[in-house]
Amino acid sequence: MFPFILKRLASSLVVILIVAMFVFGLTAVSGGDPAVIFAGDDPSPERLEAIRERMGLDRPVPVQFLLWLQTIAGGDFGTSFFTGRPVLTLIGQRVEPTIVLSLYTIVMSILVGIPLGAAAALRPGGALDRFLSGFTSLAFALPGFIAAYILIYIFAVELRWFPVQGYQPLSEGLGRTLWSLTLPAVTLSLIYVGLLARTTRAAMIGVLAQDYIRTARSRGANTYRVVVHHAFRNGLNAVLTVIGLGIASLLSGVTITETVFAIPGLGRLTVDAVLNRDYPVVQGLILIFASVKIAVNLTIDLLYRVVDPRVAQ
């Protein structure tokens, strides 16, 4: 197990390095002289020269990259062009809504998707199974912001069960936060519920056809026991994959959902930073999002081995 972890960590580091190169290159191509942006209105040529020297902009590009990497590794993600505040502070202020929304979405998707898929697997071709198949296609094709507006129309405008938009911070109490995030979480869940249910269904159908399930049944185990104790764990790996993919693509999904629901999270920060051409913030966000995605993939790879020791062989 240990050499495996070490090997995967090393390759993750290489991937992060490539992301860092890309992110660094992004600013290089974006035009715009950082020194001019940094110096503010109408700077003298001497002042610009001094800033260039301090920021290392007079050095060759590879040296600049290494210097930049060094400051990033030291936890300094630079200063926002737009607000003049440290990038990490800006990100820190916006991280709470996105984390709560992501966790809420994942929990909701798992609680609905897995039982739905398992139930559909018990009767392939049945009514529930056909409903699930239609639901998944629709959930994939329905753009996030349209799903959001449909939910807002039904549950906020007509029924008035949930707020139209906005976010209640955790300091107001968990109940209020979850209440304000329910429609956004349902919006994001739609596609994962479909994916998770379909994967669970496929995995379960495969497992339920095995001999040992028939043995369990012939010895008098009821359906619930067969599904939960015998079949589920063996189908869990495929489900884990989808949960991992879900978390990774959730990071894309929050951008649009947070915009529709006016949630002051990292997704909204990304949109604002891009529209303002605030590259230090964009760089920081890409690096952090990519690291989270890599960390999730790594964890899932390790969990495979915990759940199913056969993978290691």
Partner: peptide, 12 residues
């Protein structure tokens, strides 16, 4: 390089 690109969320 492919892995690096895949590590960045698509929409971002």
């Amino acid at each position: 390089v492919n892995d690096g690109m895949l590590a960045i969320p698509e929409l971002l």
